[in-house]
Amino acid sequence: MSLAVPTVPVVRSPNFLQTLFTGNLAVTAAGVVIMIMVLVAIFAPFLAPMDPLTQSVFKINQYPSMEHWLGTDQFGRDVLSRLIFGSRNSLIVGLVSPVIAAVIGTILGVVAGYYGGIVDRLLTRLNDAMLSFPELLLAIMIASVLGGGFWNVVGVIAVAFIPGFARVARASTLSVVQEPYVEAAVAVGLSSPRIIIRHVLPNIAAPIMVLLTLWVASAIRLEASLSFLGLGTQPPAASWGNIIRDALSNIFGSPWPIIGAGLLITVVVLSFNVMGDALRDALDPETQS
């Protein structure tokens, strides 16, 4: 057969990271912020100028100085050191909980969306019931049954996020299953699990990834709220959330913990949101060259 078909010029398609960062200063900045925060959390013991737990009655509520760059709190603890150590708990919650929720939620959503029928109805009703509670309320309810404590909070937040992921995964699956390429996969004899792994998951990955980055931010916030309510990181250990809680009663004595932790949460949440938007664009096959 000799039909002249113009061959497509060989263009090396830019790789994923190039697409992600090209020509957008905000995305680069967000990436740098996240990198720095992760490094700070890992190397906290080397970076923190003081022990975050050491109290001193002689140094309470101090203003920033050469010795304490961000002042001290009502127990005389160094605020900067507490923020540096607090980044560990906050980032672990922020990364681990949404990832657990994404994995479980995606599995449930894809199964419900792909198989439909009674499985779908059961899972969707259960999901709706959970979605009808605000995440914070759901987390508080589960946490008060299971008790507080850091790893419980990680799990609680993950459970609270599962319905959101399940719903997005189900909706995306329903639209992907309608696509002729899934029908084509059935027609060439692929089994259902293979169709799900090959054709459904890659094509619903974009919304899931974006949701994941959005909820990294939510998880950090939720951990802060739970810690603020006394259910999260237990004192004297520090997380950005309980730093704010401890300082709140003393806001006029020493505002520095609240300002510092508040700014950090804002910057990190913002960075993850910017990354989420950039990921969505980079993952969209139609926008890639």
């Binding site: 002729p180 390429y181 029908e183 084509a184 890659p202 094509n203």
Partner: peptide, 23 residues
């Protein structure tokens, strides 16, 4: 039925939707 599928195939109307964009 899956075994029979080798013998019976389909060509789709929509050349855009019938090829997975990620493969």
């Amino acid at each position: 039925m899956r075994a029979v599928r080798a013998n019976a195939q389909i060509i789709f109307q929509d050349p855009y939707g019938s090829l997975s964009p990620r493969r």
